[in-house]
Amino acid sequence: MSVVADHLSWGVKRKAIVKDVSLRVTDGETLGLIGPNGSGKSSLLRLLAGLKRPDQGRVTIHGKDIAAIQRRALAQSVAFVQQNAATETSVSVRDVVRLGRTPHRSALSGWRAADQAAVDGALARVGMTHLQDQSWLTLSGGERQRVHIARALAQSPTVLFLDEPTNHLDIHHQIEILQTVRQLNVTSIVALHDLNLAAMFCDRIVVLKDGALVASGTPETVLTEDLIANVFRVAAAVSPSPHHGRPQIHFHTGV
Rank of each mutant, 00 (worst) to 15 (best):
173 H>W: 07
49 A>P: 05
23 L>H: 07
8 L>V: 09
130 H>G: 15
160 L>C: 05
157 P>M: 11
204 R>P: 03
40 G>D: 00
24 R>K: 12
191 A>T: 01
133 D>N: 15
91 V>Q: 08
141 G>N: 00
239 S>N: 07
16 A>N: 05
109 S>Q: 15
193 H>Y: 09
141 G>D: 00
156 S>R: 15
6 D>M: 07
65 D>H: 13
15 K>Q: 12
100 G>S: 06
153 L>T: 11
107 A>T: 09
174 Q>W: 03
61 I>Q: 08
242 P>C: 08
193 H>P: 11
127 G>L: 02
182 R>F: 03
92 S>Y: 02
5 A>E: 01
68 A>R: 15
12 V>N: 07
72 R>M: 13
9 S>E: 00
85 A>M: 10
110 G>A: 14
241 S>C: 13
118 A>E: 10
33 L>N: 04
67 A>Y: 11
65 D>G: 15
223 L>I: 11
94 R>K: 12
2 S>I: 09
164 E>L: 02
94 R>S: 12
92 S>G: 06
21 V>H: 00
191 A>R: 09
201 F>V: 05
189 I>S: 08
207 V>D: 05
100 G>M: 08
9 S>F: 05
162 L>M: 14
92 S>I: 06
180 T>V: 12
113 A>E: 15
75 A>Y: 11
38 G>T: 03
173 H>P: 06
146 R>A: 15
229 A>M: 01
5 A>C: 10
216 S>Y: 06
89 T>H: 12
73 A>T: 15
212 A>S: 10
133 D>R: 10
84 N>F: 01
242 P>G: 04
230 N>H: 14
165 P>Y: 05
20 D>K: 06
159 V>A: 01
44 L>T: 13
254 G>Q: 12
103 P>W: 07
202 C>T: 03
156 S>G: 11
229 A>R: 12
231 V>H: 10
33 L>C: 07
195 L>V: 00
235 A>C: 07
73 A>H: 10
249 I>T: 01
3 V>D: 01
133 D>G: 14
249 I>D: 02
144 R>Q: 14
92 S>V: 01
254 G>T: 13
209 K>C: 12
217 G>S: 08
82 Q>Y: 03
154 A>W: 01
173 H>D: 13
